[in-house]
Amino acid sequence: MSVPEPSETLVRLTTPLSDEDVQALRAGQPALITGVVYTARDAAHQRMTEALERGEELPFDLRGQVIYYVGPTPAPPGRVIGAAGPTSGSRMDGYTPALIERGLKGMIGKGPRSEEVREALKEHRAVYFGGLGGAGALLARQITAVEMVAYEDLGTEAIRRLEVDQFPVVVINDCYGGDAYADARARWQRV
């Protein structure tokens, strides 16, 4: 597979993501995501993993989808959601390769991922995006609709279907082994 040149140009993505969408992305590239993403964090990942171990179907078809690691605050009156910024991806590392194998194409979180996750991104052509941590009020503006999907008893940790409009992210880990955090440090570190 030939690897195109890296680019810092803003890319507009519409979910679900295809292999071609993923292959066009490079670490460090800013992107705007429009379409459906699903929320899931620690507890929902544990339940999905247990469901898979029992041979059960997951609450939504993973193929082509993007999971947003977020536990939003309750929606105040007149809003679809409260603050909704990304949480750390590393806590989902242990669960993630199995989901990528089943067709998950993207994840939005913050902070680095494990070697196993980065390998799975390469092997199955998927991507890890970094969102703007600690900017939950601003990011909530890009979320236009919210629907409960599963595990409602988990409260903030339930799986929700979000419709997002031009949700800003940066490609952190692409499907070629690129790592925006490592590149950033190599460029900006002072010895």
Partner: peptide, 9 residues
């Protein structure tokens, strides 16, 4: 708008 600046309150 009196909304939390971060979802992790």
């Amino acid at each position: 708008e009196s909304i939390p600046m971060c979802q992790d309150t």
